[in-house]
Computed example of a mutant assay.
Amino acid sequence: MNKHLAGTVAIVTGASSGIGRSTALELAAHGASVAVVARRQDHLDALVGEIQNTGGTALAIAADITDRAQATSAVERTVADLGRLDILINNAGLMLLGTVSEQDIQDWDRMIAINQTGLLSMTRAALPHLQAAATREPRRVADIVNISSIAGRVAWPTFGVYNMTKFGVNGFTEALRQEVTKSHVRVGLLEPGAVETELVSHNTDDVKKALAASDDIAEWLQPQDIAESIAYMVTRPRRSSIAELWAMPTAQA
């Protein structure tokens, strides 16, 4: 594989499983040193070992990014230990479904905290370092990729608060892109459809049964499909910015 990202440093949140884990492996294969951020230390340690076994460089940072201080610390530790920051992948997310009238309000708070507040905190802490990287070799460009969802484009019953968080991510991403793109900090949005990850597993058994009953998608995307899309976005030449990428299973598109 071409080492398009040699000499760069990336942070991937939500890296303990699913899309985040696959993305960390993919970026490392392209030559980036990768800081993997999530709450499950054992999963992160295993991922770092896998990257190191293939000759890559990785750093495990156990953190709860819904705590602004921990999010900021994760960024600062990355820069202190790995020397710089070129790429931020805001992947951490939570999808808890239920009707507006009946869903546990604590589920709302948890989704807002992870899907929005955590993303904001990571972005704010990373931005000065990304702006500095965009002025330096090896690429003279930096990247933020925010992982949203088809639920940031289309609303459905029982998805209300999750829809709200992802529609918000979409709007924030576009506003930030306009603010920083001329300084060669590229800000991109990736909206996956159905991907086979742990995302659904955090719901109640009733919700999972309802989702399974309504599922008419013959073949879901795999985390690697999204990881490859992210890698495509951040390995474009400096002159090229992918503002939005919608990645769907063929049967769902």
Score class of each variant (00 low, 15 high):
Thr117Phe: 11
Asp64Gly: 06
Asn146Thr: 05
Arg110Val: 02
Gly56Trp: 01
Asp86Tyr: 04
Thr173His: 05
Leu96Gln: 08
Met95Val: 09
Phe167Thr: 10
Ile65Ser: 03
Ile105Leu: 15
Ala133Arg: 02
Glu76Phe: 03
His43Ser: 14
Val169Thr: 11
Ser183Met: 08
Ile105Gln: 15
Leu127Thr: 09
Arg124Lys: 14
Thr117Gly: 05
Ser149Thr: 06
Asp45Trp: 04
Gly55Met: 05
Leu120Pro: 00
Gln41Arg: 15
Leu44His: 13
Leu44Gly: 00
Phe167Ala: 10
Asp42Trp: 11
Ile150Met: 06
Arg140Asn: 14
Ala126His: 05
Gln103Ala: 15
Leu130Pro: 05
Glu76Asn: 12
Leu176Asn: 06
Val48Phe: 07
Leu97Ala: 11
Pro128His: 04
Val48Ser: 04
Asp104Ala: 13
Ala126Gly: 07
Arg68Cys: 04
Gly98Cys: 06
Thr72Ser: 11
His43Phe: 11
Gly49Leu: 12
Arg136Asp: 12
Ala58Asn: 12
Leu88Phe: 04
Asp64Ala: 07
Asp45Ala: 13
Gln41Trp: 09
Glu174Asp: 10
Ser101Asp: 12
Ile61His: 06
Phe159His: 09
Ser73Asp: 13
Val100Ala: 14
Leu44Cys: 08
Thr173Lys: 00
Ala92Gly: 04
Gln103Pro: 00
Ser148Gln: 02
Arg77Pro: 01
Thr66Pro: 00
Thr78Ile: 12
Gly160Asn: 09
Gln70His: 07
Asp86Gln: 10
Gly56Thr: 06
Arg110Trp: 09
Ile147Ala: 06
Ile89Ser: 03
Trp156Cys: 00
Thr66His: 11
Val100Lys: 09
Lys182Thr: 10
Gln106Cys: 06
Ile114Gln: 02
Arg84Ala: 03
Pro138His: 14
Arg84Leu: 05
Thr181His: 06
Gly49His: 14
Ser149Leu: 00
Thr158Glu: 08
Asp143Gly: 07
Asp109Trp: 14
Val48Gln: 10
Leu47Gln: 13
Leu127Lys: 04
